[in-house]
């Protein structure tokens, strides 16, 4: 089956229909909700969505048996995202091959949080990326904590952030002392993988176009989307998109894609802004002294040399 990979050039070309529609209990200014909305907009009506347990499961808890999903949606367990995608895609392939369902491209999008896709043994994600189901897309919506249970650290929580499991205290001052796990690089390292990318909410269209590329890549694909979380990051809800922009412009969040074995940066901040522009807006970093933030700036600078090198050579390296 052929893969359509529509690339939008302007926001005005975007289809007006939403498949994750209005009417749910997500926070005002919820980054994951916006990502969910944009991803499904790009995927279109012929899509099945699977939602591992997480903020976007519980925040969408029905009120009086209502549902915001205009396309099929099914819950899966926190540790089941990868397997759920494989099972769903396998069913469509089997039914179509055996003539039990009409031939058609059906997208399968699994929307896992950082708890669901970066922790809990990758939730079968690694298995999913090793199969050849063509229209299977895994989206990691990364709000950098277990937000639903009250902001607990995950393995993608950045160094220095306070969470309820890694509070900044009198003795342990820093908060989270683990470095953020780079899940997209791990996924890109799977053999024969067609499409892996990172994204956030900004720049406009970037996320949607990457979704389109992933679904049309002919293989399973993975997009790691950074999504600001007003509640967990201690930020005003109107800053959600602005924070996405600053994450990119400070180089703390690197936008790239790995397509058919070739790495490429999709956005090069120039000049790159100091990371304090991003971090100082967020209450979760408020306890960090300027010296610590400068240290993060230095680390970011060093890492960017590697990112630039990867962009030149098209090869994966580990910053």
């Amino acid at each position: 089956m052929s893969g359509e990979r529509r690339q939008f050039k302007s926001v005005k070309e975007v289809p007006p229909e939403d498949y994750y529609t209005s009417g749910r209990r997500t926070c005002a200014g919820c980054g994951p909700a916006l990502a969910y909305r944009l991803v499904l907009k790009a995927a279109g009506v012929n899509t099945v969505v699977l939602g591992p347990t997480g903020c976007m499961y519980v925040a969408n808890a029905h009120q009086f048996l209502t549902s915001p999903y205009a396309i099929p949606w099914f819950h899966t367990q926190l540790g089941g995202g990868g397997a759920a995608g494989v099972g769903t895609a396998a069913a469509f392939r089997a039914l179509m091959k055996k003539g039990k369902r009409r031939l058609e491209d059906v997208n399968v999008v699994v929307f896992g949080g950082d708890g669901g896709f970066a922790d809990i043994g990758f939730a079968g994600l690694s298995m999913g990326m090793s199969y050849d189901y063509p229209r299977l897309l895994y989206v990691l919506y990364d709000n950098e904590s277990y937000a639903n249970t009250g902001i607990q650290a995950s393995s993608t929580t950045p160094w220095g952030a306070t969470t309820t499991f890694t509070p900044s205290g009198k003795v342990r001052r820093i908060g989270n002392e683990r470095m953020k796990k780079n899940v997209a690089l791990i996924m890109a390292a799977h053999p024969g993988v067609r499409y892996v990318a990172t994204a956030t909410l900004w720049p406009p269209l970037d996320l949607m176009n990457k979704v389109s590329k992933g679904l049309g890549s002919g293989g399973p694909s993975f997009i790691h989307v950074l999504v600001p979380c007003p509640k967990g990051w201690f930020t005003p809800p109107d800053l959600t998109v602005e924070l996405s922009r600053l994450a990119v412009e400070t180089g703390l969040w690197v936008l790239w894609e790995h397509e058919n074995g070739r790495f490429r940066l999709t956005y090069k901040p120039s000049p790159r802004k100091h990371v304090k522009n991003y971090m100082q807006l967020q209450g979760r970093f408020a306890h960090l002294p300027a010296s610590e933030i400068d240290m993060i700036e230095e680390v970011t600078e060093r890492e960017w040399e590697i990112w630039a090198e990867m962009d030149r050579t098209g090869k994966l390296m580990v910053p």
Binding site: T21, S22, G23, R24, V45, Q63, T66, P68
Partner: peptide
């Protein structure tokens, strides 16, 4: 089993203006 809105529709059973 529940049913979501038709394409182009919204979740009319749960309006969220109270958040504003």
């Amino acid at each position: 089993i529940e049913f979501g809105p038709p394409p182009g529709g919204k979740n009319i059973g749960f309006k969220t203006e109270f958040a504003r």
